[in-house]
Design a protein around this nucleic acid. Structure first.
Lengths: 243, 243
DNA sequence: AAATGTGAAGACATTCACAGCA
DNA sequence: TGCTGTGAATGTCTTCACATTT
């Protein structure tokens, strides 16, 4: 017996409790809404928005219902209001300061990526461990030495760090980020990071995504080669988009 | 009534039926195994491998069980054998040809990303729509004009395409890729792609990941500011790693 | 003695289908 | 009438706990 050794606290106090799967889709809805706003739409139905976001409308409505009741029955959602509510839910009413560590190939590209600035993030500083690179100017920022990390994080109130170093440097960088006070990390290095509780890590792994595609390619190739040619209504109607 | 309007075919013929969630973790296990092999380990227990991969051991064993029974009770898994089996399951026994479309900031970085080559993928060609860029040499490849896409895809038997264009060009590129015969797409453009059944799309969205982190940052900031200081056993012991 | 492989339970997520409201 | 919001049903994923095997 012993009835499950950890009680697994679900929430403390007044948790709105938005499911993680929903959180991961909110940015997609937000983007679709911006596009609709630009196209001149004032209101949108769950069906229309769902199509624009690439999900089905029941899922969309359930997702939005976790934020509150912002639609009008018989009409739909007011685009501007929904943009506000989703932005608020995601914490995008403030502009987060981000530091980027590692200005190699990929770091360069990330430093110049316009999508960060336009979506509520400000790159406060670029860092590298390589003395050769320090002082280099990228996207209007001087590359600083990683030893300055503590100071910059404190001064600029940085809470998010992006790691774009080689894999063998990533854990050390993560340790330094955490030490400096960063509590969220986006990791582009192909490795697993060890961080203390209370620090969130998300991983973006380029090769991993290709390997997943490889799996499905193989499946397709196999079933094509086998007896079953599978006429038109192919089995693969599964949705892959959802990360 | 009407009992669910689509029968939802789950598989055609002899599907081993590896769950999608498992597939997404296999590349992580593979990487951990390579690291272990390099470190001289011949065998590994589910517990050790799980730690290296950042998951719990029950999940790891369940995942591996979908590939077959390759462990030895009382001992563990032979590293080399497991590498083989996972590689086979992921379709990495062959080297896939990939085309990359869009050689801007990000495309440049991707073209030079060593992780592709080292994990079973060969960049067969680079494309851009901008005549200025055509002919430019990146990572040992000449950039070609997108009009050559059909020919290259056919000649080099390409089945995977990577889109690294701006969002407004992505759908058009996707259409051309599909038209040329590509059946898997990795999309870095921040937009939803429309593709026919049988074509898989995976999306990598850099800003989206930051937005998810923003959500959790806000939650932390809120609960810190509120009445509840939440002693040591902080609520955030949730695992975020799992993509 | 040690560690795998797996039914069963539980948690989580999606989809259905319709009550309720504008 | 049209569309949202949501209980209930279904499906998927994770975790537990232990029989089984070396």
């Amino acid at each position: 017996m012993s009835s499950g050794n950890r009680p697994r606290i679900r929430a403390a106090g007044r948790t709105r409790g938005v499911p993680e799967a929903t959180v991961a889709r909110l940015p997609v809805y937000l983007r679709a809404l911006h596009a609709l706003a630009d196209a001149g739409h004032d209101t949108v139905s769950s069906e229309e928005l769902a199509v624009a976001a690439g999900v089905n409308s029941a899922k969309l409505r359930k997702d939005l219902s976790h934020l509150g009741s912002y639609g009008t029955r018989g009409v739909g959602y007011e685009v501007a209001l929904l943009v506000d509510q989703i932005s608020r839910a995601l914490g995008l009413t403030q502009r987060w300061a981000v530091v980027l560590v590692g200005v190699g190939n990929l770091g360069h590209a990330l430093a110049g990526y316009a999508g960060f600035a336009s979506r509520g993030f400000r790159i406060a500083a670029l860092f590298d461990a390589d003395a050769e690179r320090v002082g280099e100017r990228i996207a209007g920022q001087d590359v600083r030495h990683i030893d300055d990390l503590d100071r910059v994080v404190a001064e600029e109130q940085v809470s998010i760090g992006v790691i774009a170093t080689p894999a063998d440097a990533a854990q050390e960088v993560a340790d330094r980020l955490v030490e400096a006070g960063v509590t969220s990390i986006l990791n582009f290095a192909p490795c697993v990071l060890q961080v203390p509780d209370g620090v969130d890590v998300r991983k973006v792994d380029l090769a991993l995504e290709l390997q997943i595609l490889s799996f499905h390619e193989q499946r397709k190739a196999d079933s094509a080669g086998t007896v079953t040619p599978l006429p038109a209504s192919h089995v693969d109607a599964r949705e892959v988009v959802g990360q």
